[in-house]
Every structure is written in structure tokens, then in C-alpha cells.
């Protein structure tokens, strides 16, 4: 079973994504910010990470930078969910190593499709 980590400071968003991906039978773990996610990843070998941009303690970009500096997670697909229209932030995030940007609110089927694709290595 594939393992997915959802990193978002909003418990509603975490629940929603869990709900959207329910049928796919992934093992889903939640983290409430970048710091929490780093701790969870120490024991969890995630196959895909869905991360928010703006979070307390450690934001999405910093989290992805930290993530990519870890040998094990160098290629793990990362989807960033965000509402930002700030092109500069998006560029920073992509440079940090985000694989895909999705705007909130995301279409549930589109998210499922993209998650499946990234997990298959597409």
C-alpha cells in the first residue's frame, strides 16, 4: 500500500484530502506543519507528499528544501497545494523541488489522477 503524507496547518484541508483520496486505499498520514512533517518522515517512508505553502513553524518551501537535502527523499514526488498567485513564490517552490503545483480548490478527480500518475512515476 502506498503511503501519502499530507502537510497542512488546516485540519479541514487534511480531512478533505483524506476524503478525496479515500477510494484509492492509500495509507495516509497527516502533519500540521513542515516541522511536524519532518518528524513524521523520520519513521514514515512516504511515497508521495502533498504540502501546503503557507504554514507556521516551517513553511512549504523550507520544508521541501529540507526534504530534498535528505538522500532518501530526493525523488519523492511532492504536490504543492496553494492559493497563491505570486509567481515568484511559485518559482522558489519549483526550484526547491516541488513536482507539481495545484491551486486550491482543486478538482477532486484531478487530484486523484495526478496522485496516481506521480506514484506511477509519470
Amino acid at each position: 500500500m502506498k503511503k501519502i503524507l499530507i502537510v497542512d496547518d488546516s485540519s479541514t484541508i487534511r480531512k478533505l484530502i483524506r476524503y478525496i483520496l479515500k477510494k484509492q486505499e492509500y495509507r495516509i498520514t497527516e502533519a500540521k506543519d513542515g516541522m511536524d512533517a519532518m518528524e513524521k518522515l523520520a519513521s514514515l517512508e512516504a511515497d508521495l507528499i502533498i504540502v501546503d505553502l503557507n504554514m507556521p513553524n516551517m513553511d512549504g518551501i523550507q520544508f521541501v528544501k529540507n526534504l530534498r537535502s535528505n538522500y532518501y527523499y530526493m525523488d519523492t514526488p511532492v504536490i504543492m497545494l496553494t492559493t497563491t498567485k505570486d509567481a515568484e513564490l511559485k518559482r522558489d517552490a519549483l526550484l526547491a523541488g516541488v513536482n507539481l503545483f495545484l491551486n486550491k480548490p482543486v478538482q477532486p478527480n484531478f487530484l486523484i489522477y495526478k496522485v496516481e500518475g506521480l506514484l506511477k512515476g509519470e
Binding site: 496547518d9 488546516s10 479541514t12 484541508i13 478533505l16 501546503d52 503557507n54 504554514m55 507556521p56 492559493t83 486550491k104 480548490p105 482543486v106
Partner: peptide
């Protein structure tokens, strides 16, 4: 200020998700 921004930002995101 960051805290308030994030709170409002989160509500913006979740409410748009839920329609």
C-alpha cells in the same frame, strides 16, 4: 500579523474548497 494572515488565509482556502 503573520498569525492573523495565516488564519484568514486558511479560512480562504478551506472555504473555497468547500464551495
Amino acid at each position: 500579523i503573520n498569525g492573523i494572515f495565516r488564519a484568514v488565509h486558511t479560512i480562504k482556502g478551506t472555504s473555497s474548497f468547500l464551495g
